[in-house]
Structures are given as C-alpha cells and as structure tokens.
C-alpha cells in the first residue's frame, strides 16, 4: 500500500485527474450507445412493426439484419472499449505509476 503522501500527491496530479475523467467519459458514452442501440431496437418492434417486416431480398426482412446487427454491434462496442483501454488507458496508467511510484 502507498504512503499517505503519495496518495494525496497522486489525487492532485493533473494526469490522474485526466485519466479518471477520460475513462468515465468513455464508459458513459459507450453505455449510452448500448442503451440507445437496444432500446431503439425495442422501440422499433413496439412502434414500427411494418418497417421491420419490409422485405429486402427474397423473403428476408430488414428486421433480420437489424437484430443480428444489434448482437454484432454490442460486441463491437466492447471491442472499441477494450482497444481504447489496452492502448491509451494502460499507457496513461503506466506513465502515472512510473512518475509517482506504486
């Protein structure tokens, strides 16, 4: 565990503050994206049934790629987050830890 001096120092560190606010922002934006994606889909089913039943090619309705797209895009969103965290976030954490110890 760190000494109290280091804890105080780190909490006041501008880079640490940037780190937390950036991470919160990304988490929040992606959470809102996923909610819009899913509840948008539910809203389409509730209010736009005929649209989802529109045929796009042969018997295939547009509802099918939309539903499968909701599954795939949910995964893509987690991929975006993990990619950002593995590249940007981890290197910011490393820099802070090198500078301030820990």
């Amino acid at each position: 565990m760190q000494t109290d001096v280091n804890v105080a120092k780190m909490l006041e560190d501008p880079e640490f503050k940037a780190l937390t606010s950036q991470k919160n922002r990304i988490s929040l934006i992606l959470t809102v994206c996923e909610m819009v994606l899913f509840f948008g889909f539910i809203a389409l089913i509730a209010f736009q049934k005929p649209f989802l039943g529109t045929k796009i090619s042969g018997a295939v309705t547009i509802g099918i790629p939309i539903a499968v797209g909701a599954i795939v895009f949910s995964w893509v969103l987690t991929g975006i987050y993990v990619f950002w965290a593995n590249t940007k976030y981890d290197s910011m954490v490393r820099r802070i830890r090198e500078r301030l110890g820990g």
Partner: peptide, 15 residues
C-alpha cells in the same frame, strides 16, 4: 428478438 436481450448486459458489464 428474445435472444438479443440476453446479450446486451455484457457491454454494460465491460464499460
């Protein structure tokens, strides 16, 4: 439709 609902918790868990 039903199957989509069972996946959407996972991104939230990640974020």
């Amino acid at each position: 439709i039903y199957s989509v609902g069972w996946l959407v918790g996972w991104p939230i868990l990640t974020f």
